[in-house]
Nucleic acid binder design. Structure first.
Ligand code: ZN
Ligand code: ZN
Ligand code: ZN
Ligand code: ZN
Lengths: 151, 151
DNA sequence: TTTTAAATGATAACAATTATAAATAATAGA
DNA sequence: TCTATTATTTATAATTGTTATCATTTAAAA
């Protein structure tokens, strides 16, 4: 935890941004909920628990800043809200998601499955890939079992 | 054109929906702008040109309906708007997109590059894939040339 | 310390989307 | 056909997520 905060602090400093108390509180919330996919509002409410004086605008600004520095990725699962997802330690690219259409759960795939696909895209379409967003929609393991049971 | 409208009409009827004049006008706009990625507002303005009496809410409802029937796919490129994209004729899955971070252009990949990846996901993660969303962010062919020129 | 710039908090403004209710059109039954 | 019922649409209000504004605070520089 502390190490990762320290690292993020350095990333901010390298672009001459400061890790203010508000920003640190926000980053801590993101770290403590790394498995989740929090909306700005979610983050705001969680940060408020430890630092009640923080404003919603500051949370939005912080998340925007962290996005620009590629510390978090902004993602949208189709409900009207943006969600903010910490990059995995040392990850070059954004990780992938499995969204269950039955229960709404979101699972993560950290492994980069797209190496081959991306070289094809570069070669055959002449498009220089910098990053990607890949989400699978389907039925999670748990819901598959449920379906079998109830049939 | 007429064939595809006829087909969509049947898809609607099969779920006991009607192809009202407003819905037809909306579908026509989508067909005429198949290469584009129109927002609800975009569609509304274009439909209004031929059927000025249509209301924005109707366009939203129609797009929602077409989404449910998998006639169009709703996609979000990270600006705050949903965009609506007709499924390619006979396509099983949603096609992919190449978004240029320089010029904002959006190119399409109709070929399904994910067959292997999806079978891995099914096998190794036990997730039953129904559909996907894949977008690459990077530099398009044209902007790569620009960069070379100006350097 | 004084000056300057950066960051914050409260709140207003904005834009996209959804909900509501009255009007219209289509459909089915008598 | 007329009537009743249902589906659909229009106009508009309400809601929601996000961004902009501005006065205030904090931190850094001179
Ligand atoms: Zn994630
Ligand atoms: Zn599930
Ligand atoms: Zn497309
Ligand atoms: Zn480009």
């Amino acid at each position: 935890m502390e190490q990762r905060i320290e690292k993020i602090k350095k990333q901010l400093h390298s672009q001459s941004y400061k890790l203010t108390p508000q920003r640190e509180a926000t980053v801590r919330v993101l770290l403590e909920h790394e498995e989740d996919h929090l909306s700005a509002e979610d983050v705001y409410l969680l940060v408020k628990e430890k630092a009640p004086e923080i404003g919603l605008a500051t949370v939005y600004r912080t998340l925007e800043l962290l996005s620009e520095l590629k510390i978090v990725d902004k993602i949208n699962f189709g409900d009207g809200v943006s969600r903010y997802d910490l990059r995995k330690e040392g990850a070059e690219h954004f990780h992938h998601h499995l969204v269950c259409v039955e229960c709404g759960s979101v699972e993560e795939i950290v492994e980069d499955l797209l190496t081959d696909v991306e070289s094809r895209v570069e070669k055959d379409w002449g498009f220089q890939v910098k990053d990607h967003r890949l989400t699978f929609h389907g039925v999670c393991k748990k819901c598959q079992v449920e379906t079998v049971k109830s049939s």
